[in-house]
Simulated scan of single mutants.
Amino acid sequence: MNSELAWLKQSSNTVVISSEHFHSRLKSVEEVKALADLLSPYASKVSVVVYLRRQDKVAVSLFSTRCKETNSSLQILPEASSNVDSYYDYYALLERWSEVFGEEALVIRRFEGPRRGANALLLDFCDAAGLPSDVRYQYPEMFNRGLPGQAQYGLVWFNRIFSVQSGYHIWLKRQLSEYLVACFDGPQLLPARSDAESFLRRYNAGNRRVAERFLSNEQLFSTDFSGYPFSSEPRFNVDEVKQKVLEFCVSKQKNLCVPPLSRDGMLLLAYRVYYDSAPTIKRLIDSVFAR
């Protein structure tokens, strides 16, 4: 990184370094200062652009991400803990960065979800970072799209069946995610409205401190929870989702000479889907493993 920054210093006036891990991994003033020490030989001025999103909405988004990983629980909003509360404590976040770079270096933006117009968020970032507006930027394709609730449910259910996952399971789950997105279309899983309101209340005091110190008492987030349902129960046929997961796994097995998923694991998957017709599914799976 030092060599790249040294090269950029000779050819560029402005360098943008972006990482979501600046928020989650730099948990102390000392760690933020280590970053400042790394940058100091190459930058005469540092601006810290931070986007803050209402905590309940961040948790909902993280749930979708973790469904693609190893999450095996349908609980969307995390329980209170020191790690969780530290992650959502925006006042502590801004305080440690302002202590190192100075309060005047902070450029605070609110992230309220998709904005009107293509690339509106990136254009807002260019403005916040002081990048020229008269340049034709090349905007990247959006890859990290949200999952419909059926896909989230199917991935969680897959993770419950195959709790110990090899590299093949990870590859298979990525394919399963794409398959379920192609099969289903609909809203993501959401917590009940009362749960979302209760979750945000845990961070209201810190949010007020952010508004008072950094935003001249301007309200940090809206208090609109109308986008949440009254119940967190899935509003789709879960058996249909389970059937799609099973059909996908069996179809992948047929194309492999040595099936990486164990026979017992596939049988367990079948029994979870079809309680009454499991013998029929057993014969289907046996035919695959008889090759």
Rank of each mutant, 00 (worst) to 15 (best):
R272K: 09
L220S: 08
V258K: 12
N83P: 04
V288N: 04
R174F: 06
S81Q: 11
R25Q: 13
F230A: 01
Y42D: 02
G149W: 02
D195T: 06
N217T: 04
L26M: 11
S287T: 12
T65P: 00
R145W: 00
L123I: 07
E212K: 10
E240G: 04
G130F: 03
L246W: 02
N204M: 14
S64K: 03
S81M: 11
N237D: 15
Y271F: 09
E178P: 00
R272S: 09
R116E: 15
M266Q: 03
H169A: 07
L62W: 06
E178D: 14
A43R: 01
L131I: 06
F289T: 09
V210R: 00
V245N: 02
K244A: 15
E20F: 03
N119L: 06
K9M: 07
S18E: 07
F214C: 06
F162T: 01
E4S: 05
G117A: 11
R160H: 08
Y274A: 13
W7A: 15
L155N: 07
S86L: 14
Y91P: 12
Q138I: 10
G167K: 05
F230S: 08
D239W: 14
N207R: 07
T70H: 11
S163F: 05
V288R: 02
S47M: 01
E31Y: 09
N71A: 06
F199K: 02
F125R: 04
D37R: 13
F125T: 04
F162M: 05
E30S: 13
F158D: 08
Y228Q: 04
Y91E: 15
L62A: 10
Q175E: 15
K282W: 08
F184W: 14
A270E: 07
L122S: 08
H23D: 07
Q75D: 14
V241F: 01
D127T: 10
E218N: 08
E4L: 11
K68H: 09
F63C: 01
E218I: 05
A151F: 12
K33H: 15
P234K: 01
C183Y: 03
L261M: 12
L155C: 05
V32M: 02
Y139M: 11
Y87T: 14
R235H: 11
S133V: 07
Y137S: 07
G154V: 01
M1V: 01
D264R: 10
W171R: 10
P259I: 09
E197D: 03
M266I: 03
S226A: 11
E31A: 14
G186S: 07
F101C: 06
D224S: 13
F214P: 00
N207G: 14
E212P: 00
F22I: 09
A182Y: 09
S262R: 02
R110I: 15
P114L: 07
W171T: 08
P191Q: 06
L268T: 04
Q175S: 12
F101D: 03
S232L: 01
D89S: 14
C257T: 10
G227L: 06
M142N: 10
L246I: 12
A128F: 05
F289R: 13
S226T: 12
K68G: 12
L155D: 00
F236R: 07
L215A: 02
F236W: 03
D195Q: 13
S216R: 12
N255R: 13
S81F: 11
F236M: 08
L147E: 06
